[in-house]
Design a binder for these strands. Structure first.
Lengths: 197, 197, 197, 197
DNA sequence: GATGAATGAGCGTTCATTCAT
DNA sequence: CATGAATGAACGCTCATTCAT
């Protein structure tokens, strides 16, 4: 029972504090205190604050991936797969507001730049799923022929903004609204050539 | 000749430093130094650092507004007006990367929250132009019937992301790409029901 | 009257504390406190603790030089000049025990090594007087033909040891003892070949 | 085979690290690591770091004594015995630079003071050999009539300085240079009264 | 108004020491 | 005996802010 190991506690405390107060609003001593450990203990698990911040980021990524891949069916049409990914991503964010806030803080900071975020949503694995899907769509003439980075912005940029508004309480997303938002994102990237033929 | 008054110099220095190094990478002494004034002088014009940061934000807004309104013709159709606003906004960002970086820093920080950013692009006046346009579109059945906040996210969220990628050098926007990106944003919010009738 | 400027106070406090408690027994806060200034004030005058330590060393050197050169007569025979320098050096040390203790601490520490102490007593100017005198003596066959470093050790090494013993209270030096000690140092380096005619 | 017992390993590791990096450049954890033991293990053998440092000092002394006494012949004349002791001491230092560095660090530190080092070279036993020899010389009118502490400084102070210069690489001692240096030390303390008679 | 020297609370980090295993 | 994870006091240093000039 006494097993929520210390690293876990530290990560949890750091996430909660940084998400709410920002990087410099969350001193190491405060994190340690909230985690119920001594200050020095943090340095047993993380070389310094920068490393802690970066590891936190990776931890979140590792949690997101399985979530969005659950129920993902590669054999389905591009549109359906896109809806799945978009919906799952948005859902994850509004269900894990701390993770979302942290991610946003991280991206807009010197730390994030060091990570060469090729995209906004994620790094290695996550990003690849999105990228692959968009490329298949472009090749199959289902999606507009635009650079990946722009497609990505069109497809997922709005989801980030919407998630933020929801978390800040400026809007309340329900299943219907989520669905319609993701559909609208699809409208942004889909091709219209043969639509009415 | 002795007139680039001190407040102006301070604002300019603060913007340049914060945009590049972040809020906590730009100490007051460094800002004063760059502005060519004494440290104490800053406090003659701004109550404290928080106030300076907030005023900086408002200054930028005040610069953006005239820029996007130049050539704006209220009597044109919604679609054209949207293209105008989107293009002008995106152009402003990539032509004023310091302003853009500052804005992003501001939004993702405790400072930004204090400002109750109803929207991402702007505050009072700016936002109102966007809001009014979107509302007209919804009423006229040209734009999807979604909450303003979501429409806003669909319409301008991608522009922010794309501007960032451009500024970071991950993509190079030219006139054509800008045009196609803004068009795609329009596709995201436009209504399709009667399109082919 | 209110003019014992802050840098001076800091130097004095640092010297007193480090001489007695050693480098790591004299925290910056303690030095500041003793100097009657704020902690941050030290950093107005010295970039960091290492720099403070090094500057302190140079300050002491600058004080020693005029002292040992007072009454020094370059036209006198080597022996007399040696007695003058040795006596003046030893006198300075026992009259300024803080300076002496500091010097010893400095030499036996990473800081001192960075200074490439070519000799034990001093650095640039000081050392040169000693060196020049010894070289003249060697050339004139008055002093043993040994490497400078060894001559220096024979001539001044005992003075350091004796000064330390005096300061620690294990011996009490008076004028006579000082004179006989310096004479003995001279015996160590002088040449004996033609002594008895 | 499993016998280079832990205490021995700890002492060896501590000596190597402190000699090179100084007292505060050698944390307990680093010493333990180098010794191949757990941090806590050190505290099984030494009450705390101060005690470890002091014991280390005593260990070195215990190693020096047999070395300088090897071949020492009490029945020989004072001069020859002095040359023997001086040569053996200097040799030991340059052959065991770690021991020498440690000794110097120790002497110039709060730790050393606590030891009331009556002399520079050593403590009880070592010192006694030196002391006894010098006293015999004084009584026999071979050595100058000066307080023991001063004679000691004249006789062995230069050897310390010379050893340091050698270890730091500012000079390279060979057999001849060692012999001439020790002879010069003797010149410093010997009596000259009847020399030419 | 304008200055910048002065301040000290607060930060990130280290490390001697303890103690449950 | 032996361990090394855990601790937290203490350190060097920064920087927003003040105020005498």
């Amino acid at each position: 029972m006494e097993k929520p190991d210390k690293r876990e506690e530290i990560v949890r405390a750091a996430l909660a504090l940084i998400a709410v107060h920002g990087f410099h609003g969350a001193p190491m001593a405060m994190i340690a205190n909230r985690a119920g450990v001594g200050t020095g203990t943090i340095y047993l698990y993380f070389e310094n604050k920068d490393v802690l911040i970066a590891e936190l980021y990776k931890d979140i990524e590792d949690r997101i991936y399985p979530h969005i891949m659950e129920g993902y069916m590669p054999e389905k049409p591009v549109r359906e797969r896109f809806i799945h990914l978009g919906t799952a991503s948005l859902r994850y964010f509004i269900e894990n507001p701390l993770d979302f806030s942290y991610l946003e803080q991280f991206h807009n900071s010197p730390y994030g730049v060091a990570f060469r975020r090729d995209s906004v949503l994620g790094q290695k694995r996550n990003c690849n799923v999105y990228r692959e899907l968009l490329e298949v769509g472009v090749d199959g003439l289902t999606i507009k022929n635009l650079p990946f980075v722009i497609l990505f912005a069109l497809a997922f940029g709005p989801l980030l903004t919407v998630a933020r508004e929801h978390i800040l309480g400026f809007i309340s997303l329900d299943d219907s609204l989520i669905a319609r938002t993701v559909e609208a994102c699809w409208d942004g990237i889909r091709r219209y050539g043969a639509v009415c033929g």
